[in-house]
Design a protein around this nucleic acid. Structure first.
Lengths: 138, 138
DNA sequence: CAAAACATATAGCCTGGGCTATAGTTCATT
DNA sequence: AATGAACTATAGCCCAGGCTATATGTTTTG
């Protein structure tokens, strides 16, 4: 069995990753919506996340509290500087993971499904390895 | 932007994966503890997950309710048939992901860290691709 | 074999992230 | 400009998964 402290640290890391996961999904989606349609409306966010409106409203509240997002009642949502930064990182990660899975020979649909879950748990080192692989496989 | 329904379905899938994640971590760890020490004590589980005892007790309660585990008050924890099956799958997945990351050139420590988060989000198809890669890289 | 040490359980709290049902705003259209 | 449709917000609920503090068993040991 692995060293207990290390194992505990790893689990703790995953739990922390978990807490930012939702934030990452939101800001990434908000950035995409703004880019594609000019604005991020709560209804669209809810539809694309597969979640009810109130859930989105509450999440937006948390994001705002955490300084990732700005929003006024009955208005659409905007990213703050740090929200934009998180969205950028998150998007890049997503694309690398997706591209990596495809390069590995995984079908597009599956790659899209798995990337959504995997992306939040990939360290910088592993991400680099993914990029290297993509490069080498071309 | 991707199709809204597909995107929503993907997010939903990740949320579901999330719900079984904790269960997988527990049964896998319980199986390892039983194998290594003959029994799975709550205190050890807590230590290795990096979590308090009461958290473990509550989790065990949920696992028992879901038929993955059997336990009597003040006694150690046992896996049911389906708990053992889940532990098996989970362990195999874990090992494949870990071996894959290492084969890709990721440092052991990092591979161990990332595998813990990634393993729960890898579909069978992607897992096969990982295995293929490990095989080919030898 | 009693007492101390240790392990487990319970109570009660918190946050996150879901939901439905209801209420309030904004916008488009006639 | 009024009204109906669409959107957004609020209230109030639920469960998972954390925690600390306290109580209750179990084991070890003097």
């Amino acid at each position: 069995m692995p060293d207990a402290d290390k194992q505990a640290a790893n689990f703790q890391r995953v739990r922390e990753a978990h807490q930012v996961e939702v934030a990452e999904d939101y800001v990434e989606l908000i950035a995409d919506l703004i880019e594609a349609t000019g604005e991020a409306r709560a209804a669209d966010i809810a539809r694309r996340l597969g979640v009810s409106h109130p859930t989105v409203v509450k999440a937006i509240g948390r994001l705002q509290r955490d300084g990732l997002v700005e929003s006024l009642p009955y208005r659409s949502v905007f990213l703050t500087e740090s929200g934009r930064a998180m969205a950028e990182r998150s998007k890049r990660r997503h694309e690398v993971v997706l591209g990596f899975l495809k390069a590995l020979g995984v079908a597009d649909e599956t790659a899209e499904r798995d990337a959504e879950g995997i992306e939040h748990h990939v360290s910088d080192e592993t991400l680099s390895a993914f990029e290297r692989f993509i490069r080498d496989s071309r």
